[in-house]
Design a protein around this nucleic acid. Structure first.
Lengths: 186, 186
DNA sequence: GTAATCATGTAAGTAGTTACATGATTCG
DNA sequence: CGAATCATGTAACTACTTACATGATTAC
């Protein structure tokens, strides 16, 4: 089965695999939890859903909506699930790295140390907040599996995998911000 | 001083702040070390340099080149250094997160566990190699400052800041890949 | 009654990638 | 002598963002 859709297409499939949704709902959830690792706006989601439906990876069900248009509920077809599962095991394409904070750190020697320190401490607080947030969500998800075991085929298995990464990421980033701020202090 | 250039513009300023370069050299170094946190291709660098020069942040010196065109060596003006230093202390714009591996992890419950495990172990090796690479570079940079102290205004201060982050990042990512692979094994 | 939410869609613009064309020099 | 490297530049394309237009329902 050869499928050529952009990574965004698979991101949408991944979200819809958990249950049918409208384009509007997808755009909202592309904040969280999808937004933790892939973000998109409605303007991009809308045409991509059409392509996925045309490729037979999504089904559409129309229902009367609140506005001038019908509401369109998307769900993943069997072909869509197959394509998603196969894509998951393919090596990721080397993505361009874009980390603005790291770029600022690289150029921090051109800045006033006190001002740079302020930015780093503010960023540290941001990471501290996200770390706490992720830990709460992790507890909640783990709590819904009283035996402590989450099967490989349970959607929560994916959520927990990403949560665990997010927690390590925020902790690392937090430590780094505080370390660099301290360096600028001497 | 109000400057409106894209983040790529500041990335180029950050690289040129260490010393004059041609567009070709910039495109090559946008692999490493710049590429560790910001990447760009020649096709994008070329027009951006023109904009920066027009804005007075860069100076150009023409020299006879090997090909049909003159070689153009860019260097940062005083205004450019000022703009860069100020930009460093501004909070980063909330960038869209795009992490394909994490997206795959989120959807890993739709895949064959054995196949997914293979991908994760391959990724782990990749991170292990990068970790070793960064540690070597860090030793080299630290070695060039025998007193163990790097002043805030030394370009190496920025390099060491990003290297330290990179090392933590790769270690975290490596651990996570191995953890998830082990989870899929049970 | 007005603001927020739900929900669709279009269009214009920016950012970034890929591919092409040119041609001298250096290395094997 | 052919391949890789140095070095410029253009054009077409894809991906993504922002802004706009429409309008019903719900909450305050």
């Amino acid at each position: 089965m050869r499928v050529s859709t952009s990574t965004l297409g698979f991101a949408l499939l991944a979200l819809l695999a958990k249950g049918p949704k409208t384009a509007y709902e997808l755009a909202r959830r592309a904040n969280r939890p999808l937004g933790y690792f892939w973000s998109a706006r409605y303007g991009q989601i809308h045409p991509q859903l059409r392509l996925l439906a045309e490729a037979g990876l999504l089904e559409v069900e129309a229902a009367p909506g609140p506005g001038p248009h019908d509401k369109r509920i998307f769900s993943v077809t069997e072909a869509g699930m197959g394509a998603l599962g196969e894509w998951v095991c393919q090596p990721p394409r080397a993505e361009p790295t874009r980390d603005e904070m790291l770029l600022k750190a690289y150029a921090v020697w051109t800045a006033r140390p006190a001002a740079a320190r302020g930015l780093l401490l503010a960023q540290a607080e941001l990471h501290r907040a996200r770390l706490a947030e992720y830990e709460v969500i992790q507890e909640r998800v783990l709590g819904s599996h009283p035996d402590g075991q989450v099967p490989h085929r349970d959607p929560d298995f994916g959520s927990l995998a990403t949560l665990r990464y997010g927690i390590g990421y925020e902790r690392n980033r937090l430590d780094w911000c505080e370390w660099l701020a301290a360096q600028l202090d001497t």
